[in-house]
Amino acid sequence: NRRVIAMPSVRKWAREKGVDIRLVQGTGKNGRVLKEDIDAFLAG
């Protein structure tokens, strides 16, 4: 159960899209999950 680094707005975006943010690979600094990462995860 790893800790995910993400801005609150990104966490909210993931929740709205029904995405478990822990499954998303972050591409930002220090592995931070970005809004673009959520979109890419949804795109496959």
Rank of each mutant, 00 (worst) to 15 (best):
31 G>T: 03
31 G>P: 01
3 R>H: 14
42 L>A: 10
28 G>E: 02
11 R>F: 11
26 G>L: 01
37 D>G: 00
25 Q>F: 13
39 D>R: 08
38 I>F: 02
28 G>P: 00
21 I>H: 01
41 F>K: 04
12 K>V: 07
11 R>M: 07
21 I>D: 00
17 K>A: 11
29 K>A: 13
42 L>G: 05
34 L>E: 08
31 G>V: 02
23 L>K: 13
18 G>P: 00
17 K>H: 15
27 T>G: 04
31 G>W: 04
43 A>N: 12
23 L>P: 01
33 V>P: 01
37 D>H: 03
15 R>K: 15
36 E>F: 08
39 D>H: 06
33 V>Q: 02
43 A>S: 12
16 E>Y: 12
22 R>W: 10
26 G>P: 08
44 G>P: 09
17 K>E: 04
18 G>V: 03
6 A>G: 04
16 E>I: 12
38 I>Q: 00
9 S>C: 11
12 K>T: 07
39 D>M: 10
34 L>W: 04
30 N>W: 13
13 W>A: 08
34 L>M: 09
5 I>N: 11
39 D>W: 06
8 P>V: 08
35 K>M: 11
4 V>F: 05
44 G>D: 14
33 V>S: 00
12 K>A: 12
28 G>K: 01
1 N>A: 11
39 D>L: 08
39 D>P: 02
5 I>E: 08
19 V>M: 03
8 P>Q: 10
40 A>C: 11
41 F>V: 07
1 N>H: 14
15 R>Y: 13
36 E>N: 11
16 E>M: 13
38 I>Y: 00
5 I>R: 09
14 A>R: 00
15 R>D: 09
24 V>Y: 00
14 A>C: 05
3 R>F: 11
5 I>K: 09
44 G>V: 15
10 V>K: 01
37 D>N: 06
32 R>E: 15
27 T>A: 03
34 L>G: 04
14 A>D: 01
23 L>S: 09
26 G>T: 03
18 G>Y: 06
42 L>N: 06
20 D>M: 04
7 M>S: 15
43 A>Q: 14
31 G>E: 05
35 K>L: 09
12 K>Y: 07
7 M>N: 15
42 L>F: 08
2 R>K: 15
17 K>T: 09
6 A>R: 03
33 V>K: 03
40 A>L: 12
6 A>I: 07
14 A>H: 01
36 E>S: 14
20 D>I: 04
42 L>C: 07
36 E>M: 12
7 M>L: 15
22 R>S: 11
15 R>H: 12
40 A>M: 12
26 G>I: 02
14 A>F: 03
15 R>T: 11
28 G>F: 02
12 K>R: 13
20 D>E: 06
21 I>G: 00
34 L>D: 04
37 D>W: 03
6 A>L: 04
14 A>Q: 01
3 R>I: 15
19 V>Y: 01
30 N>Y: 13
28 G>W: 01
38 I>P: 00
5 I>W: 08
16 E>C: 11
34 L>C: 08
5 I>M: 08
21 I>C: 00
4 V>E: 04
41 F>H: 09
30 N>Q: 10
13 W>C: 07
39 D>F: 07
43 A>Y: 11
44 G>S: 15
24 V>K: 00
8 P>L: 11
32 R>D: 05
23 L>E: 11
1 N>Q: 13
5 I>A: 06
40 A>H: 12
11 R>S: 04
2 R>A: 10
23 L>N: 10
28 G>Q: 01
6 A>T: 05
16 E>R: 11
27 T>Y: 03
35 K>C: 06
9 S>E: 12
30 N>V: 05
33 V>L: 04
5 I>Y: 09
22 R>L: 09
18 G>A: 06
34 L>F: 07
4 V>Y: 05
11 R>H: 09
7 M>W: 15
14 A>P: 03
8 P>A: 13
26 G>A: 07
44 G>T: 15
37 D>E: 00
28 G>M: 01
29 K>D: 10
36 E>V: 12
23 L>T: 08
3 R>Q: 14
36 E>A: 15
7 M>K: 15
21 I>W: 05
10 V>A: 06
37 D>K: 02
40 A>G: 08
37 D>I: 03
19 V>C: 06
5 I>D: 08
20 D>H: 04
35 K>P: 04
22 R>C: 04
19 V>P: 00
9 S>V: 08
12 K>F: 07
3 R>S: 11
21 I>M: 05
1 N>V: 13
25 Q>M: 14
1 N>C: 15
5 I>L: 13
7 M>D: 15
12 K>P: 00
14 A>N: 01
27 T>W: 03
8 P>K: 14
40 A>T: 12
33 V>G: 00
38 I>H: 00
21 I>V: 05
28 G>S: 03
36 E>C: 10
25 Q>G: 07
19 V>N: 00
42 L>S: 07
2 R>W: 06
18 G>K: 09
22 R>Y: 11
10 V>Y: 01
35 K>D: 03
31 G>M: 05
26 G>S: 04
13 W>G: 04
2 R>I: 13
26 G>C: 02
18 G>W: 05
16 E>L: 14
40 A>Q: 12
4 V>I: 11
25 Q>R: 15
30 N>L: 11
3 R>N: 12
15 R>M: 12
1 N>S: 13
23 L>R: 12
23 L>A: 11
39 D>N: 11
4 V>Q: 06
3 R>K: 15
30 N>C: 13
44 G>R: 15
26 G>Q: 02
16 E>F: 11
21 I>E: 01
18 G>D: 07
11 R>Y: 10
13 W>T: 06
9 S>M: 09
2 R>L: 13
10 V>Q: 02
43 A>P: 06
8 P>G: 09
41 F>D: 03
41 F>G: 03
31 G>C: 07
7 M>H: 15
4 V>H: 05
26 G>N: 02
29 K>Q: 12
10 V>H: 01
7 M>V: 13
27 T>M: 04
35 K>Y: 06
32 R>A: 14
23 L>C: 06
9 S>Y: 11
37 D>C: 01
28 G>C: 03
5 I>P: 06
43 A>E: 13
27 T>Q: 05
24 V>T: 02
3 R>D: 12
10 V>M: 03
35 K>W: 06
27 T>R: 06
26 G>D: 01
37 D>Q: 01
11 R>P: 03
16 E>W: 09
44 G>E: 15
17 K>V: 12
23 L>V: 10
10 V>S: 03
43 A>M: 14
34 L>Q: 07
28 G>N: 01
42 L>D: 05
16 E>G: 06
4 V>W: 05
2 R>Y: 08
7 M>Q: 15
7 M>A: 15
3 R>L: 13
19 V>G: 00
3 R>V: 15
24 V>G: 00
41 F>A: 07
38 I>M: 02
34 L>T: 12
7 M>F: 15
21 I>P: 03
35 K>S: 05
37 D>L: 02
19 V>H: 01
35 K>H: 08
24 V>S: 00
21 I>Y: 04
41 F>L: 08
40 A>K: 14
29 K>M: 11
20 D>V: 04
31 G>D: 05
19 V>L: 06
40 A>E: 10
16 E>Q: 13
39 D>K: 08
36 E>W: 10
8 P>I: 09
1 N>F: 07
43 A>I: 14
38 I>T: 00
19 V>Q: 01
33 V>T: 05
17 K>F: 07
6 A>H: 04
30 N>H: 14
25 Q>T: 14
6 A>K: 03
40 A>I: 09
30 N>R: 12
37 D>M: 02
15 R>G: 06
28 G>V: 02
36 E>Q: 14
3 R>E: 12
33 V>H: 02
32 R>K: 08
31 G>Y: 05
40 A>F: 11
38 I>S: 00
6 A>E: 03
43 A>L: 14
4 V>S: 05
27 T>D: 01
29 K>C: 09
24 V>A: 03
34 L>S: 08
16 E>K: 13
2 R>E: 10
13 W>V: 08
32 R>T: 07
41 F>T: 04
21 I>N: 00
11 R>N: 04
29 K>F: 12
20 D>Y: 04
24 V>E: 00
22 R>K: 12
20 D>G: 02
25 Q>N: 14
15 R>P: 03
9 S>L: 08
31 G>I: 01
40 A>Y: 10
12 K>C: 06
23 L>Q: 13
17 K>M: 14
39 D>I: 09
1 N>Y: 08
32 R>Q: 13
42 L>I: 14
9 S>N: 10
3 R>M: 10
24 V>H: 00
22 R>P: 01
7 M>Y: 15
3 R>W: 09
38 I>V: 14
11 R>Q: 07
2 R>P: 11
32 R>W: 09
1 N>G: 14
44 G>M: 15
33 V>Y: 01
27 T>V: 02
21 I>L: 09
27 T>S: 14
24 V>D: 00
7 M>R: 15
35 K>R: 12
18 G>M: 08
2 R>V: 14
28 G>I: 02
29 K>G: 08
38 I>W: 02
11 R>T: 05
32 R>L: 09
25 Q>A: 13
8 P>S: 10
18 G>Q: 07
31 G>H: 07
12 K>I: 09
44 G>Y: 15
24 V>I: 13
37 D>P: 00
24 V>M: 04
2 R>Q: 13
17 K>L: 14
16 E>A: 13
13 W>M: 11
20 D>K: 04
27 T>I: 02
